[in-house]
């Protein structure tokens, strides 16, 4: 019973359709289900939103255009015009994370962005892609990225490892930020929600707090998707223009 009401039980992975591929467990879980729902919703949102384009957009079209323009502006502001061709990946990442975060706000659903392995996999894809991009654009010159300009050569043996570590820490900070925000927020919601029945009449206080916190969580859902997207843009920008 205590198990069922633990504030952490919401993050439990449950196998829905057990699938085994040789030794590997590739079962279809509740996490995978929510991911599929997120992808389907994004596709529906964008296709229905752009089905009957009107000069004066309706609600859904307006939202779809807003999302498109938001990411477009983000890329223009951070990367500049040559960032335009990376629009698909950034838009995909943004919408996937955003819908994952927002779906997590639906009661009884599951927040797949609250699992470090999910966010880390996404961050690693971004990181590897950006590194490859840097090598494609600059070849071996890419390594000059790690040499701080205007520093005497004596300091290089110390500073270059630091720069490399700093570069390698990117996927971790990118993924941990998203995961920690989601995990902490949802746990907090559950903890305070648990106070409501426990306190009887005084439970209105935590109830009010939980209501406010839900609003905050929705803001954070948007914000973290935005942060993930903008950091991806910044990394692409770094790979395109070395110093």
């Amino acid at each position: 019973m205590a198990d069922k009401h633990s504030p952490l039980s919401q993050f439990e992975i449950k196998t829905l359709v057990p699938i085994r591929l040789g030794e590997t467990d590739i079962s279809f879980t509740n996490s995978a289900l929510v991911m599929v729902i997120a992808v389907v919703l994004v596709v529906l949102f964008l296709t229905i939103g752009s089905r009957r384009p009107a000069l004066v957009p309706g609600r859904l079209q307006s939202m779809a255009e807003l999302a498109y323009e938001f990411v477009g502006n983000l890329i223009r502001d951070t990367v500049g015009n040559e960032g335009r061709r990376y629009f698909p990946i950034i838009f995909t990442v943004f919408m996937f994370v955003l819908f994952g975060n927002l779906l997590g706000m639906v009661p009884y659903s599951f927040t797949f962005t609250s699992h470090i392995i999910v966010t880390f996999a996404m961050a690693l894809v971004v990181f590897i892609a950006v590194t490859i991009l840097g090598f494609v654009k600059h070849g071996m010159h890419f390594f000059s990225f790690f040499v701080p300009p205007g520093v005497s050569k004596v300091m290089w043996p110390l500073l270059i490892p630091i720069e490399i570590l700093s570069y390698l820490s990117r996927p971790i900070s990118l993924s941990v930020r998203l995961f920690a925000n989601m995990l902490a927020g949802h746990t907090l919601l559950k903890v305070f929600a648990g106070f409501v029945p426990a306190l009887g009449v005084a439970g209105v206080l935590p109830l009010a707090f939980v209501s406010a916190l839900t609003g905050l969580e929705i803001v954070i859902a948007f914000l973290q998707a935005y942060v993930f997207a903008i950091l991806t843009c910044l990394y692409i920008n770094d790979a395109l223009h070395l110093h």
Binding site: T78, G80, F146, S173, I230, L231, L234, N237, D238
Partner: peptide
């Protein structure tokens, strides 16, 4: 200066003002 590796005090990139419009 965002997640930039390196010191680039300014100048490079599309424009410095926006890049700092970063997260958080």
């Amino acid at each position: 200066i965002g997640g930039a590796v390196g010191y680039r005090a300014g100048g490079s990139g599309p424009d410095q003002g926006q890049r700092s419009g970063g997260p958080g």
